[in-house]
């Protein structure tokens, strides 16, 4: 039984609610999912394509980076753009045949594609080292992380959590992405995306190559998926297939819907709320076993998703006029 959340297993002991190490980890988690869901927001909230394979891009990004760096000695910083390009390449390969399909078929095709990627990662031992995964790709990052830590110490904060540099970088990436995506969404290019979301045929009748725009949108999602994959890998220090269960995409959707559709800042709100609540639950003393509490957390996730869709389909903070779901 795999519990992707335990992936982010917090090795720290957190007796106090104010444990800064603990909240740094939660912050990285929230940032990772904000990055992850920014691409989903472009797909679902602004283009109307229901990408259920986002975790596949995350896997491709993380594995490409790890394999290039740890197995082939490629410079870590160079491996990042290459991995993003590989993820985009996969996005195009998956999108070319499947974006022509009806929305429901597309959803199933993408989830199947992402699962195929995970199964290959699990079984292609020569390439991915199978279930054991890949280690030792983060030396370059660690030295950068150390210098950031030193810099902060010099500023006068002496007990910096060791993950604090990653926290900073994660959120800088998230904010830059969100600002960038929001701006690009307000251009004529973004307007075409929204038109496709509203009515693809109308857009085509006005001379827009809807298919090409949908592919571009998917490429953006692949990019944010890969970026989230990098952060995940640096956070865990290893890359294993079990981290890339379909569940991760579903959590991405919860983040998306909690914050509301058709608003990039929503993913920040959604991710912060979700992870604060899920991780904050650890402080509620329950007379239950570890497994039961883990199960309870996911049950809550399910209830949140059902409740949102039943009562607030535009998301907790979404605009009613730009409601994308329902009719």
């Amino acid at each position: 039984m795999s519990d992707p959340l335990s992936a982010f297993h917090l090795a720290v002991s957190f007796s106090a609610f104010t444990d800064i190490d603990f909240w740094t980890s939660v912050g990285i988690l929230a940032g990772t999912y904000a990055i992850f869901a920014t691409g989903l927001q472009m797909n679902v909230g602004f283009t109307g394509i229901f990408n259920f394979g986002q975790v596949g891009f995350m896997a491709i990004g993380a594995y490409s980076m790890a394999i290039l760096t740890a197995e082939h000695g490629v410079n870590f910083w160079l491996s990042l753009p290459i991995s993003i390009l590989i993820a985009i390449g996969f996005g195009l390969i998956i999108g070319l045949p499947s974006l022509r399909l009806r929305a429901d078929y597309f959803a199933i095709a993408t989830i199947a594609a992402a699962e195929a990627i995970r199964l290959v990662a699990l079984n292609a031992r020569d390439l991915t080292n199978g279930p054991q995964g890949i280690f030792g790709f983060d030396n370059s990052w660690n030295s950068v992380s150390d210098s950031i830590e030193e810099f902060i110490v010099d500023l006068g904060w002496t007990d910096v959590p060791s993950l604090f540099p990653l926290f900073l970088v994660t959120w800088v990436v998230a904010i830059v992405l969100i600002v960038g995506f929001s701006r690009i969404q307000r251009t004529p290019w973004g307007r075409v995306l929204r038109a496709i979301r509203e009515d693809e045929d109308a857009a085509r009748a006005l001379g827009k190559n809807a298919f090409s725009y949908k592919l571009q949108s998917l490429a953006f999602a692949a990019t944010t998926g890969a970026l989230a994959g990098f952060v995940l890998a640096l956070n865990l220090k290893f890359v294993v297939p079990d981290e890339f269960q379909p569940l991760v995409t579903f959590i991405g959707y919860v983040v998306l819907l909690l914050g509301g559709l058709a608003n990039y800042w929503g993913v920040v709100v959604g991710s912060v709320i979700l992870w604060t609540v899920l991780e904050g639950m650890r402080f509620v003393e329950l007379p239950l076993s570890e497994t039961k509490i883990a199960a309870l957390r996911f049950m809550i996730l399910g209830v949140v998703l059902i409740g949102l869709m039943a009562f607030r389909p535009q998301g907790a903070f979404g605009k009613r006029e730009e409601m994308v779901l329902g009719d």
């Binding site: 004529p188 075409v192 929204r194 979301r197 045929d201 109308a202 006029e321 730009e322 994308v324």
Partner: peptide, 17 residues
Amino acid sequence: KALSAMPVIDNMMLAAP
């Protein structure tokens, strides 16, 4: 096929070549 969740002016500007 009005693009409902877009303002009227965006509907128009979208169409410009």
